[in-house]
Every structure is written in structure tokens, then in C-alpha cells.
Write a protein that binds this DNA or RNA. Structure first.
Length: 703
DNA sequence: GAGTGCTCAGTTCC
DNA sequence: CGGAACTGAGCACT
């Protein structure tokens, strides 16, 4: 493999290295494209890495002309909600002076005392197993009691919890209860999904041990959060909802309830009555279009929405017309008042057909309404909602992406269909619609680590004896034992909790390669693409909606030792280093104490345990992970994963979605940074990069 | 303020 | 795989 260094640009050459360099672009190495490209390795290269891999010759790639142009905002600068410590007030956007804390251990325990006294029925201080056993013993009656208890308490608690200062450790800052912001919305959503994942984990593991099941983890999680006041935007309102952006995605109706986007848990039309002077009036707030009921969704900016009400009277078996009441009346009134109505578009997830995804598509106004005859002959109200101009493209962009993927629409700046050259099972497209650079510098695409060093802490596992696939709750499985009895992933391969270390099954295990405990070894599962950012070189973004906890990819590359990093620092600065020993901003991803009351150990620590630092260079060898840019408010985090190959255990770095990530959002993680004076080699030569993430929490630099 | 009716969920079962 | 059955949470309204 030949590396042509003459063509690479060294940003450091003419710059004083002791200063923070304005690294622009971050990855601006000129493309070194061989004359010939041939993909000459199988998709599953057995060992080592493919001898050769590159891009197609750029000239040969046709650039579609006159392609439909679409402004897709790939900006993702979002905040970390999980930095559990509640800020008493918003810090003004003084980005570059944010103080940094220099510790890795969690500070949440100290600054964030648990709210006492506010314990729900599920919380009895039992550990996980006891909790389950206890529930089994008491059986259905206990469940019933719980339900009734919840029902009685709910209305009161919802309001009180936020005002009660003691519950602020898990709840939402009281002032944000009625009117939220970006941070409170994020906090609620992340907490919800974390609790939900944990409930799914309990449910999965119980299948073997008992007959009692946790049905509808979404409802249970919602219940739990409501009791603790973890809600925001409780004040019902028409128009935009603070902290929620056009294009945001949701995976459960309850998520939209909890953040005030759509108040109905099932109903399609959310509305409220208002006082207009002395008159009482009713107005529509939001509608959810699930694609059923024959809603017309042909035009992306128009939604023809059907009113509510059955066309068939079950009692006397009559065909009936819909009536101008409830939601229908509200839509009618909103039309006359020219009020804005929020529209949420629902679609079945293409990759996971059982799941439904909801996307907030912004504000619409009702332009027309009429009555149609339904199939049964009953009258159905129809409302024509038209999208207000000037909003970010959301649903339209999503639909366009489907066309890109199916090949029925061409696109601007398209360079290459699959940068991985068949290594990944899902093609990784390469696009540049900002300038004429034709691709990143040459590298070899490989999905995992080369030259890995055996992991010292754990002696090589003999592997588990499970047949076919390891099953959650099977405590005889040695891999599950290593994970402290918890199966790390849910049935649909979502990571449940961040952990010091995750043990996956490896080649020594008897289970098959499709075992659920090998999530990080299976390559890309999402459609992602490498694209040119405006000011940060090449980046990685997703075409698919991604659920929080989804596996993104491994950080692939060559395992190197520290001496080599120094060498690189002196010479060609290696921008593709991943180093576990850097300082990373602590954050909390697992659910808060007290929300479940299961006393489970998974909330105790998110501090990674890595005995000796793992340093990976993806400069010459790597996968899509090397293209992920840094952000101080990332949407992806890394997690150490351990599994065995050929009698030895190796540590890998796996990336998971920190929160739900909408289509076209850039994927970013925290690069961490090296302490001044602690840098490898001479600190004078250690260059920090100026951060361009534009997040309000930006600390100004990284690396 | 407790109870009822209604609803573009989400699962499981057949 | 697709529909039916089933259990639902939250809201307006009574």
C-alpha cells in the first residue's frame, strides 16, 4: 500500500504549534486517488485487512446535472441533556470560556442528591432480582394495586412534582415545567428512553424466569416520568413548542406527550378550549397523521387530514356522519381564526417495520375543509392543511431520502455510491455539495482493528455454551455473567445502558454469529454517508432516523502505541487518532436513580474501566468512524466493548446513538482532549484544535 | 373532582 | 403477513 505524502497538506507546517490552531478544515487532506480502482476483496474479509481499497476514479463518475436541489440543514448542534446537574439558570452563550472540569468520575452523586420521599410504589429499595421476584409473588393483584395507585396519584403528582424542590434531581427544573427549552426537552426524552430501555431489558430477561411481563414499556416509562414530574412544556399552546425543532423525530406517542408537542396519547387531534374575551372558543393545537385514514400525503407541503369520529354506530348499526364536535370543531375554528397547527407525520420505519416513527413537520394553516363520503357512506370531514413557508425541510427531505435510497431520484454533489466498496452490507455514499473537492484522502476501508493488543484485565474467556443465541435472563451464560447478569442489548439490538465495559460474545462462544450479544461486530446497520461540511472538512451524517442506543459503528483502525502518536505529532499530524486516555466531558446516559426504584446496578457507574490506554489511528486504515467530527454537544458516544478472538480478548470502541437522530443530521462525538503538561511527548508540540461545533456548551477546543 | 367517552397506539395472538 | 382483539393514557366534557 502506497501513501503519497506529497499530496497531503500539513496544516501544522507553517503554524506555531504551541497555540490553538484554527483547524479549518479539520480534515482537508487532498485526495490521493490511484489511477485504477478495483475492489478486490470479499465483503467479509477473514483476517487482517484487504490488500487494497479505494474510490473510483473521480472523472469517471457522472455528476448529475440539473438535479433537484434541496436545502437540507445538517446542523446538529444540540446539547447534552444528560449532564445531570441541573443548572439553576441558563448560561449566556459565552461559548469559549466555559470552564472545564478535569475529572472523569461521575460528579452526579455529590451535586445531585436524590430526591427523597417521593417514592412510587415500585420503589421498595429492592435490587433487580428481588424486585422481580417480589412482583411475581404478589402477582396480578399487586399490579392492579399499582395501577390504581398510579391512577389516583397521577393528577396530583404531575403538577406537584415539578414544584417540589426535592424531586429536582430527576425532574425538570420547575420553571421549565410549563415552558421548556431545548435542554429540558432533551432531558425528558433521554430519561424516557433510558427508563423504557431498562424496562425492555427486564422484560426480555423475565421471559425465561417468570410469566409476568411488563407490557407496553413505553406506557410504563411514561408513567414513571409523570410521577416524578419529568415533563416539560406542560402549558398547552398553539404554535411552536420551545425546545422542539422542525424535523425532530419520536418513536412513541408518549414521547410527544411528555414534551408538550402533542397532548393526546392516542387521539390524532389535540385541541383545547380558550377564552377569547367573554367567549369560549376551541382551537386545534396539533394533528398526527399516521398515513391511515386515507390522508393525502402526496404533496409534501399539503396534508389533507380526515376528521375524527366513527362512521358506524355499533349500538344500532347505523351508518353515521362525523359530527362537527371535538377535534373536528377545533380544526374548523382554527381554520376560521387562521391559527397555526402543528403537524406530526407518522411513517412506518423502513428498517424496523414494527416500529413507527413520528416526525415534527412544523406549522401548517388550514386552508380549506369539506365533507366527503367514506366507503361506508358516512360523511367524513376533510381538512386541507398547508405548510407555512420558511421552515426547515423535514418530511419532504425524509421522503426525498427514500427516493435517493431507492435510486429513483438523483442528487446534487453525488460522488460515489459506496465508499466502503462493498465491505459494509449497506452502501456508504460520498457527496460534496459545497465545493469541488472530489473525496477524502486515500485510506483502506476496514471494519475493525488491525494489530490489536490483547486486553490485560480479563483472562481469555472460554466462551459461553449457549446454543444458537444467548438468551437474556439465562444466568448460565458466561457472557451474561460477565455483564453482571444483564443482557446489554434489547431484543432489537439497542444498547440499554452505558457501562464500564461491555462483554460481547466472541469466536470462542458456541452461539452463532447472529447471537444478539454481538451487536458491535456486525457492521453498519444505518444508511450513513460521508459528506463535505462547510467548515470542518469531511463529516458523517445519517440518512436514516436513528433511535437512541442504536449501534452506529466501531472506531476501526490500526492500534498503535503512544510513541507512535508522538512521532506523528512531530511529523504529519495524525487527525485520525482515537485515544481512550483523553479527558472526556462526563455525562449521564443511564436513567436517573429513583425513577425505576429497581436498585439496579446499571445506574451506578458509567465510568469506563480501561486498564491500559487504547490508541487507534484511522489514518491509513479505518471505516466510517474516522469521518465523524467532534462536537461538544454530540449525538453519538463511544463505549468500550470486549470480546474474544482466537483465545484472546480484545478491546474495541463502539459508537452508539446518544439520542434519537433525525435523517440528515451530522453524527458527532466528543473527541476529548489532553491535559496541558500531560500530553504525550512534548506538550509544546501538542496542538489543540479550535472547536467549531457552535453548541452553546462548546468548550472551545478539542484534541 | 370523579366518572365517562373517545381516540390516526402498540402488542400479541390467531 | 395481516387483521382482530385487547389494554390502554390523557384529554374534554359532564
Amino acid at each position: 500500500m502506497e501513501e503519497n505524502n506529497n499530496n497531503t497538506v500539513h496544516a501544522s507546517d507553517s503554524v506555531d504549534k504551541s497555540r490553538i490552531v484554527e483547524a479549518k478544515p479539520l480534515r482537508s487532506l487532498a485526495p490521493v486517488l490511484p489511477n485504477h480502482i478495483q475492489s478486490c476483496f470479499p465483503a467479509n474479509y477473514p483476517s487482517g485487512f484487504p490488500p487494497f481499497c479505494s474510490f473510483e476514479k473521480p472523472r469517471e463518475i457522472p455528476i448529475p446535472k440539473g438535479v433537484e436541489e434541496i436545502a437540507v440543514d445538517a446542523k446538529t448542534a444540540e446539547e447534552i441533556p444528560g449532564s445531570a446537574k441541573e443548572k439553576t439558570r441558563e448560561t449566556p452563550v459565552a461559548a469559549n470560556v466555559t470552564p472545564i472540569r478535569f475529572y472523569k468520575s461521575s460528579v452526579d452523586e455529590e451535586v445531585n442528591p436524590r430526591g427523597g420521599g417521593d417514592v412510587n410504589l415500585f420503589s421498595k429499595g429492592l435490587n433487580c432480582d428481588e424486585f422481580v421476584d417480589d412482583r411475581v409473588k404478589r402477582g396480578a393483584q399487586n399490579i392492579q394495586n399499582c395501577k390504581e395507585f398510579l391512577k389516583r396519584k397521577k393528577n396530583k403528582k404531575t403538577r406537584e412534582a415539578g414544584v417540589d424542590g426535592q424531586s429536582s434531581s430527576v425532574g425538570v427544573n420547575p420553571s421549565l415545567n410549563d415552558d421548556g427549552n431545548h435542554e429540558s426537552v432533551n432531558h425528558v426524552l433521554m430519561t424516557f428512553d433510558s427508563v423504557r430501555r431498562r424496562l425492555c431489558q427486564l422484560e426480555d430477561s423475565k421471559e425465561l424466569n417468570s410469566s409476568l411481563s411488563i407490557k407496553r414499556a413505553d406506557l410504563r416509562a411514561s408513567n414513571s416520568l409523570t410521577l416524578k414530574g419529568v415533563k416539560t412544556n406542560l402549558r398547552r399552546r398553539a404554535g411552536a413548542v420551545p425546545g422542539i425543532e422542525v424535523g425532530d423525530i419520536f418513536f412513541f406517542r408518549m414521547e410527544m406527550c411528555l414534551v408538550g408537542l402533542h397532548g393526546q396519547s392516542m387521539g390524532g387531534i389535540d385541541y383545547m378550549s380558550i377564552k377569547d374575551g367573554s367567549k369560549e372558543d376551541t382551537v386545534a393545537l396539533s394533528v398526527v397523521s399516521s398515513g391511515v385514514y386515507g390522508d393525502d400525503t402526496e404533496d409534501n407541503d399539503v396534508l389533507v387530514y380526515s376528521g375524527q369520529g366513527e362512521n358506524f354506530n355499533k349500538k344500532d348499526k347505523h351508518v353515521t356522519d362525523q359530527k362537527l364536535q371535538r377535534g373536528n370543531l377545533a380544526l374548523d375554528r382554527s381554520a376560521q381564526r387562521h391559527d397555526e397547527v402543528r403537524v406530526i407525520r407518522g411513517l412506518r420505519d423502513a428498517t424496523n417495520r414494527s416500529a413507527k416513527i413520528y416526525m415534527y413537520d412544523g406549522l401548517y394553516k388550514i386552508q380549506d375543509s369539506w365533507i366527503e363520503r367514506g366507503k361506508s357512506g358516512g360523511g367524513i370531514f376533510k381538512y386541507k392543511l398547508v405548510r407555512l413557508p420558511g421552515q426547515k425541510s423535514a418530511f419532504a427531505a425524509w421522503k426525498l431520502i427514500q427516493k435517493w435510497k431507492s435510486g429513483s431520484a438523483s442528487r446534487n454533489g453525488f460522488i460515489l455510491a459506496d465508499l466502503s466498496n462493498g465491505v459494509e452490507s449497506i452502501p456508504v455514499s460520498l457527496v460534496n455539495d459545497v465545493d469541488d473537492e472530489r473525496g477524502p484522502a486515500f485510506f483502506t476501508y476496514f471494519m475493525s482493528l488491525t494489530k490489536p493488543k490483547p486486553f490485560g484485565l480479563v483472562q481469555p474467556s472460554l466462551g459461553c455454551n449457549c446454543k444458537a443465541s444467548c438468551l437474556p435472563g439465562d444466568l448460565n451464560c458466561s457472557c451474561i455473567q460477565r455483564n453482571e447478569g444483564d443482557f446489554p442489548y434489547t431484543a432489537n439490538s439497542i444498547l440499554v445502558s452505558r457501562k464500564p465495559l461491555i462483554h460481547e460474545c466472541g469466536t470462542m462462544c458456541r452461539c452463532l454469529p447472529n447471537c444478539k450479544n454481538r451487536v458491535s461486530q456486525t457492521g453498519l446497520k444505518q444508511h450513513v454517508e460521508v459528506f463535505k461540511t462547510r467548515d470542518r472538512g469531511w463529516g458523517l451524517r445519517t440518512l436514516d432516523p436513528i433511535r437512541a442506543g442504536s449501534f452506529i459503528c466501531e472506531y476501526a483502525g490500526e492500534v498503535i502505541d503512544r510513541a507512535k502518536v508522538c512521532q506523528n505529532d512531530e511529523g504529519d499530524n495524525d487527525e485520525y487518532i482515537f485515544d481512550t486516555s483523553r479527558i472526556y466531558q462526563p455525562f449521564k446516559w443511564n436513567h436517573d436513580h429513583g425513577l425505576l426504584g429497581d436498585g439496579s446496578s446499571n445506574v451506578s457507574s458509567e465510568d469506563y474501566t480501561i486498564p491500559s490506554p487504547l490508541i487507534i489511528s484511522a489514518k491509513n486504515v479505518g471505516n466510517v468512524g474516522r469521518f465523524m467530527n467532534h462536537s461538544c454537544s454530540p449525538n453519538v458516544f463511544w463505549q468500550p466493548v470486549l470480546y474474544a478472538e482466537n483465545n484472546q480478548s480484545f478491546l474495541h470502541i463502539a459508537f452508539f446513538a446518544l439520542k434519537h437522530i433525525p435523517p440528515m443530521a451530522e453524527l458527532t462525538y466528543d473527541y476529548g482532549f489532553v491535559l496541558a503538561g500531560h500530553a504525550e511527548g512534548s506538550s509544546a508540540h501538542r496542538r489543540k484544535m479550535k472547536c467549531l461545533c457552535e453548541s452553546p456548551k462548546c468548550r472551545g477546543f478539542f484534541g
